[in-house]
């Protein structure tokens, strides 16, 4: 059984000997919330789903970023975080990369939008990015929508249900970065509708039965045609 609890920083979520996740601190036998959010207590342990906060990179995260600088050896990428991502040129050109023979701007220019993966990140250095993998690389077109990174899981939904419904109903394609940046491509009216739905998901992320509400919203929009 899962018990849910609304918490603010400093609240005692529960007591005892349990496993616990991020945004929770253990003090003696008490579990203390470090963020505003929803705490879940189950047999598996204590979990906190925060409702606000910056994006902190994690290895294997897929993020949407913008190239903001280029040196002889790699690109600097703004990933909507307090840390800048670094994409080494050798990750793109392969091991035979040499700054003399390869031209970095032939691949990515400053201002380009990328879908990249966090390859490595620890507290001591900026996150290292990579574009090797299916779907990764330059994003050619689309509108950027920014939401709070903490609400991305809600947007994706259980097993991708929400995102599938969104793209299906609005006839758009979406690239969702874990860092809260979403690129929507498709017909203009579809983008507008998708943007409104995404805004709604962000604002009402804590509401139960959100998927149903979004579904109704999408259908309603089709009738009124606004």
């Amino acid at each position: 059984m899962i018990t849910r609890k609304q918490v603010i920083p400093g609240d005692v979520i529960t007591k005892g000997d349990l496993r616990y996740g991020s945004f929770i601190e253990k003090r003696d036998d008490q579990f203390i919330a470090l963020r505003v959010g929803l705490a879940e207590i189950s047999g598996e342990g204590v979990k906190l789903i925060p409702l606000s906060g910056p994006y902190i990179p994690h290895v294997e995260d897929q993020v949407v970023g913008k190239v903001i600088d280029m040196s002889g050896f790699g690109w600097e990428i703004d990933i909507n975080s307090c840390f800048f991502g670094y994409l080494p040129a050798s990750f793109v050109f392969g091991r035979e990369f040499s700054p003399g023979t390869h031209d970095l701007s032939s691949r990515f220019k400053i201002g380009d939008l990328l879908l990249a993966k966090v390859e490595a990140f620890d507290r001591s250095r900026d996150p290292q990015m990579s574009v090797r993998g299916p779907g990764l690389g330059k994003i050619p077109k689309g509108e950027i929508i920014k939401i709070s990174p903490t609400k991305v899981p809600r947007l994706i939904g259980r097993k991708g249900y929400m995102i599938q419904m969104l793209t299906g109903q609005t006839n758009t394609e979406m690239i969702v970065g874990q860092n809260g940046l979403i690129v929507v491509a498709g017909p203009p009216e579809g983008i507008l509708k998708a943007a409104a739905a995404i805004k709604m998901i962000e604002e009402e992320a804590h509401v139960a039965d959100l998927a149903k509400k979004v579904e109704e919203f999408l259908k309603e929009g089709a009738v009124s045609g606004s």
């Binding site: 400093g10 601190e25 963020r35 606000s52």
Partner: peptide, 10 residues
Amino acid sequence: ADAGINMRDL
């Protein structure tokens, strides 16, 4: 707390 910075208490 609104900015979502980890806090031990208010």
